[in-house]
Nucleic acid binder design. Structure first.
Length: 642
RNA sequence: GCUGGUAUAACUCAGUGGUAGAGUACUACAUUGGUAAUGUAGAAGUCAUGGGUUCAAAUCCCAUUAUCAGCUCCA
C-alpha cells in the first residue's frame, strides 16, 4: 500500500501498519509528538491500522490541529473530573481555544475557587490513571437515546441539529463518555500541563435568551515550560494595561461620578491634543474640511435619520421647553444638515467634511472597559459626499489614509467587511451595490479581510479596522461605511452636468475611531513609553543640586523656545532619585545638569532608549530631538527595565 | 443587562466579631549630591453607600452603586 503524507511525499509499506507505526517509521520524534491523524480527510485514532492506499496527515503538538486535539482532550479530562465530583452537573460544550480550552456546565451553583482546586486535583488523578481514549460511532437515533438516558439534555439538542442520516461520534475514557467530533489524544496521560484559570457565565449557544451556564476557562500546553511562559506573558500583559498605566502616568481617570465618562488629566490631554493636531494636519493635506455641530438636537432630526427608530435605547434624551431632544450618538445628521446649508454642484464633489464630534451612547454597564468602551467619546468622523462613479476611488483613498495613520504608530491591523444586518433600512439593490463597492475596493488593493455576515450598520455595509490590546483582544477602531440611506432621508442633492438635481452617495468614516479607544490602544502598544512626538513630557531637566537651578532655568527656556515639552525637577533630592522617578514616568529624555555642564554650556543626556548618552551641547540636543519629533520616530528601547 | 469576584489612607495592599495598619506618595526639618530609592519627624481613612443581625461589625447577612473577568451587545 502507498501512504501519501500531508507534505505530498509518498511512502510504500508491505504489511498492515498502524498510524503510530507509520509515524515511527518516518521518524521517532514524530511518533513521540503524534497527537491525532486524518486518513483520507477523516479523523482516526492513532491505533488505526492501515491496509490500503491512503492520504495520511499526522498532527503533532507543533501543529495547530495537534494543539487543538491536545487541548480538547484536556477539556474532556475537565468534564470527567467535574462529573466525578458533581454527578448532577450537565455538560454543554468544551472546545479548544487559543492557549487553552473551556467547558460549559449547567449546575445549580457556580463553581467556587475551592471547588476549582478540587477539580484540578481530580484532573491530575485522571491524567495519572492513564485512561485509554477510544472513539466509536452511533447512528443518530441511538446517539439521542444514549444521551437522553444519561440525562445530557444539551448533547441531545446538539445531536438533533445534525442531519438525519449522520453517524455520531463519541469519545470514551474510563467511565467518561462525551459526544465529540474529535480528534483526541490516545491516552489521558499525555495531558501534561494545564491550569484552571477562571469561572465565568456564558449563555447556552451564545444567546442571551438562553440559560446562563458556568464556564471554566483553563490553559493547556504540551510542555510545562510553555505553560509557564504563557502565564508569565499574562503577568507582563497586566503591566501594560491602559487602565493601570493611565492612572500611574496620570493620563486619565474613571470616577464613580461618571461611569463610562472618562476624565482627561493634564498629561492625557496633551496626548489627546497632539493626536488631534496630527489628525488635522493629515486631513487638511488629504483634502478634508472641518466642521463642528451641536451635541443636542431635536427629536424630529433623529426621527428623520432613523436613529430614533433603530438606536433609541442607546441614546440619552432630554426635554427642552416641552420638546424632546437627544444627545447625538453619531455625527452624521449634523454633517448632512451642514451639507444642506448650500446648493452643491457636481463640480464640488467629492466633498470631504470632517468633525471631531463628541458622541454619547448609553452602553450597557457590563460592556464598559477602561477607555476602550466608554459612554462618551470623540469620533474623528468625516463624511464624504460624492458621485456614484467616485465611490471606489474615495474608498481606496480612505483605506490609504487610515493605513498611513496606523503606520505612524507601528500598528498592525486586521480588516473586516460587514454585510447587511437584520434590523436595517433600504432596498436589497442598494445594499448589493454598496457591499460590492466595498468589496471591489478591497480586492483591487489586494488586501486580505474577513467577512462578517449581518454585522453592518443599519444604514449600510462597512469595512472595519481592528487593533489589538495587550492581551490580544481586538478592538474596532477605523471604519468605512457606505450609505445610500441618509442622503435619501435628508433629501440632499447636487446639480449635475445636465442641470438636474441628483442624489449624492455618502461615506461615513473614522480613522482613530474613538480618540479615547485609540489612546487606550496606544498606551498598551507602547506600554506607556510613547514615541517622543506624543509624549506628554518630552524632556525632564534634573539639576544635580540647587546650585545649578539658574543654569537649569536657562536650559528650560531654550527648550521651551523650541516648542519642546519640558519639565524641571527642582526638588532637593539626590540625582539618582530624580532619575528613578523620571524613568518611571517614561520621559524619553533626561538632561542632567551640574557643575561641568554649567561651565561648558552643555547637558548630560540620558535617553529612555539608550541610557546614558554622554554630554551634548544644548543646541545639538535640540536639533536632534526636534528631528525625532518632526519625523515621528519610534525608537526601540535598548535598556532593560527592572 | 446576565453569571461570578472585588470595594480599608492619594496609590498598592494587610487586617475573620472587641481601640484602624504597612510600604509608597504627601508635609516639615536636616542633607547640596554625578546617572534607578538620603535620614528623621508629622499629617492623612464615616473601612463604597444604605439597611439588618449582635452587648459589640471593616469583619456576618440583605440591597444599592462602582469596578474586574467572561457572556451578550458594540449602529
Amino acid at each position: 500500500m502507498i501512504v501519501q503524507l500531508k507534505d505530498g511525499s509518498k511512502i510504500e509499506f508491505d504489511n498492515k501498519k498502524s498510524v503510530l507505526d507509520i509515524a515511527n517509521g518516518i521518524s521517532e520524534g514524530l511518533a513521540r509528538m503524534a497527537c491525532c491523524a486524518l486518513v483520507n480527510g477523516e479523523v482516526v485514532d492513532l491505533r488505526k491500522e492501515i491496509d490500503e492506499d491512503v492520504e495520511l496527515s499526522i498532527f503533532t503538538f507543533n501543529d495547530e490541529e495537534g494543539k487543538k486535539a491536545f487541548r480538547h482532550t484536556a477539556s474532556h479530562v475537565l468534564a470527567q473530573a467535574v462529573k466525578r465530583l458533581y454527578p448532577n452537573t450537565k455538560l454543554a460544550i468544551g472546545p479548544a481555544i487559543d492557549n487553552g480550552f473551556y467547558y460549559d456546565f449547567d449546575r445549580e451553583e457556580a463553581f467556587t475557587e475551592e471547588e476549582l482546586n478540587a477539580i484540578e486535583k481530580e484532573m491530575k488523578k485522571i491524567v495519572k490513571e492513564g485512561l485509554e481514549i477510544e472513539r466509536f460511532e452511533l447512528p443518530r437515533k441511538e446517539a439521542i437515546t444514549l444521551m437522553s438516558e444519561m440525562g445530557e439534555d444539551y448533547k441531545v439538542e446538539l445531536i438533533k441539529d445534525l442531519p438525519e442520516d449522520s453517524k455520531i461520534s463519541f469519545y470514551k475514557q474510563g467511565e467518561f463518555l462525551d459526544l465529540c467530533a474529535g480528534p483526541h489524544l490516545m491516552n489521558t496521560k499525555a495531558v501534561k500541563a494545564f491550569k484552571l484559570l477562571s469561572v465565568a457565565g456564558a449563555y447556552w449557544r451564545g444567546n442571551e435568551n438562553n440559560k446562563m451556564l458556568s464556564r471554566i476557562y483553563a490553559t493547556a500546553f504540551a510542555k510545562k515550560a510553555d505553560q509557564e511562559a504563557y502565564l508569565q506573558m499574562l503577568e507582563e500583559a497586566k503591566k501594560r494595561d491602559h487602565r493601570k498605566l493611565g492612572k500611574e502616568l496620570e493620563l486619565f481617570a474613571l470616577l464613580d461620578e461618571g461611569p463610562g465618562f472618562p476624565f482627561f488629566l493634564p498629561k492625557g490631554s496633551i496626548l489627546k491634543n497632539t493626536l488631534v493636531d496630527y489628525w488635522r494636519d493629515v486631513h487638511r493635506k488629504a483634502g478634508y474640511m472641518e466642521i463642528s455641530t451641536p451635541i443636542i438636537l431635536n427629536k424630529e432630526l433623529w426621527l428623520r435619520s432613523g436613529h430614533w427608530a433603530h438606536y433609541k435605547d442607546n441614546m440619552y434624551t432630554t426635554i427642552i421647553d416641552e420638546a424632546d431632544f437627544a444627545v447625538k450618538p453619531m455625527n452624521c445628521p449634523g454633517s448632512l444638515l451642514v451639507y444642506k446649508t448650500k446648493q452643491h454642484s457636481y463640480r464640488d464633489l467629492p466633498i470631504r467634511m470632517g468633525e471631531l464630534g463628541l458622541v454619547h451612547r448609553h452602553e450597557m454597564s457590563g460592556a464598559l472597559h477602561g477607555l476602550m468602551r466608554v459612554r462618551n467619546f470623540t469620533q474623528d468622523d468625516a463624511h464624504i459626499y460624492m458621485l456614484p462613479e467616485q465611490i471606489k476611488d474615495e474608498i481606496k483613498g480612505v483605506i490609504e489614509l487610515i493605513d498611513q495613520i496606523y503606520s505612524v504608530f507601528g500598528y498592525k491591523y486586521k480588516m473586516e467587511l460587514s454585510t447587511r444586518p437584520e434590523n436595517s433600512m433600504g432596498s436589497d439593490e442598494d445594499w448589493d451595490k454598496a457591499t460590492t463597492a466595498l468589496k471591489e475596493a478591497l480586492d483591487e488593493k489586494g488586501l486580505s479581510y474577513v467577512v462578517n455576515e449581518g454585522d453592518g450598520a443599519f444604514y449600510g455595509p462597512k469595512i472595519d479596522f481592528h487593533l489589538e490590546d495587550c492581551l490580544g483582544r481586538t478592538w474596532q477602531c477605523g471604519t468605512i461605511q457606505l450609505d445610500f440611506q441618509m442622503p435619501e432621508r435628508f433629501e440632499i442633492d447636487y446639480v449635475g452636468k445636465d442641470g438636474e438635481k441628483h442624489r449624492p452617495v455618502m461615506i461615513h468614516r473614522v480613522a482613530f475611531g474613538s480618540i479615547e479607544r485609540f489612546i487606550g490602544i496606544l498606551i498598551e502598544h507602547f506600554a506607556g513609553a510613547f514615541p517622543t512626538w506624543i509624549s506628554p513630557v518630552q524632556v525632564k531637566i534634573l539639576p544635580i543640586s540647587e546650585k545649578y537651578h539658574d543654569y537649569a532655568h536657562k536650559v528650560r527656556e531654550k527648550l521651551n523656545d523650541a516648542n519642546i515639552r519640558v519639565e524641571l525637577d527642582e526638588r532637593a533630592e539626590k540625582i539618582g532619585y530624580k532619575i528613578r522617578e523620571a524613568r518611571m514616568e517614561r520621559v524619553p529624555y533626561l538632561l542632567v545638569v551640574g557643575q561641568s555642564e554649567e561651565e561648558q554650556g552643555t547637558v548630560s543626556v540620558r535617553s529612555r532608549a539608550k541610557g546614558d548618552e554622554g554630554v551634548s551641547s544644548i543646541d545639538d540636543f535640540v536639533i536632534k530631538i526636534k528631528d525625532e519629533i518632526n519625523k515621528k520616530l519610534i525608537i526601540e528601547r535598548e535598556v532593560e527595565e527592572n
